[in-house]
Simulated assay, not measured.
Amino acid sequence: MVSAKTKVINPQGLHMRPAQLFVTEMNKYQSEVSIVFNGKPINAKSIMNLMASCIKQGSEIEIQCTGEQEAEALAAAVKLVESGLGDM
């Protein structure tokens, strides 16, 4: 397992469009991807779970990846979050 902490900079947080972008990208990897927010793991390959988590701008999250392409998935996930998920 690999993990990294980062901060959500998207002004709207993980609302529908950024969440869909994140899920679509993470589904390209042969790894389990979770976001830990407020101490709770969230399946980052599920748009419903991401949207239900109510992750807002400024929230610190930990991205955890486990599996065959864990390093690649983690790098892509961190890059997406730190780029603003397409809204910056």
Rank of each mutant, 00 (worst) to 15 (best):
M1E: 09
V2T: 11
S3I: 01
S3W: 12
A4I: 02
A4P: 00
A4Y: 08
A4R: 15
K5W: 03
K5T: 14
T6F: 10
K7Q: 15
I9G: 04
N10A: 15
P11M: 12
R17A: 08
P18W: 05
P18D: 08
P18K: 08
A19Y: 02
Q20A: 14
L21S: 10
L21V: 13
L21Q: 12
V23K: 03
V23E: 01
T24R: 15
T24Y: 07
T24K: 15
E25W: 00
E25K: 14
M26D: 00
K28L: 11
Y29H: 12
Y29P: 01
Y29M: 09
Y29W: 12
Y29N: 04
Y29S: 02
Q30P: 00
Q30T: 11
S31I: 01
S34K: 14
S34P: 01
F37T: 06
F37K: 08
F37V: 11
N38K: 15
N38D: 14
N38Q: 15
G39C: 10
K40P: 00
P41N: 10
P41C: 07
P41W: 03
I42F: 09
N43I: 05
A44H: 08
K45F: 06
K45S: 05
K45P: 05
S46E: 07
I47T: 12
M48V: 15
M48G: 03
M51T: 11
A52L: 13
S53C: 09
S53L: 08
I55Q: 06
I55S: 09
K56I: 04
K56R: 14
Q57R: 15
Q57Y: 04
G58F: 11
G58V: 10
S59Q: 05
E60M: 13
E60H: 13
I61E: 03
I61R: 02
E62A: 07
E62I: 10
Q64T: 10
Q64N: 12
Q64E: 11
G67W: 07
G67K: 08
E68L: 10
E68I: 09
E68Y: 12
Q69F: 00
E70Q: 15
E70Y: 05
A71C: 03
E72N: 07
E72P: 02
E72T: 02
E72V: 00
L74D: 03
L74A: 05
L74T: 04
A75N: 13
A75K: 14
A75G: 12
A77N: 02
A77W: 01
V78N: 01
V78F: 02
V78Q: 01
K79T: 12
K79R: 15
L80F: 08
V81Q: 11
E82H: 06
E82R: 11
E82Y: 05
S83H: 08
S83R: 06
S83F: 08
G84H: 05
G84C: 06
L85G: 02
L85E: 04
G86I: 07
G86Q: 09
D87P: 01
D87G: 00
M88L: 13
M88K: 12
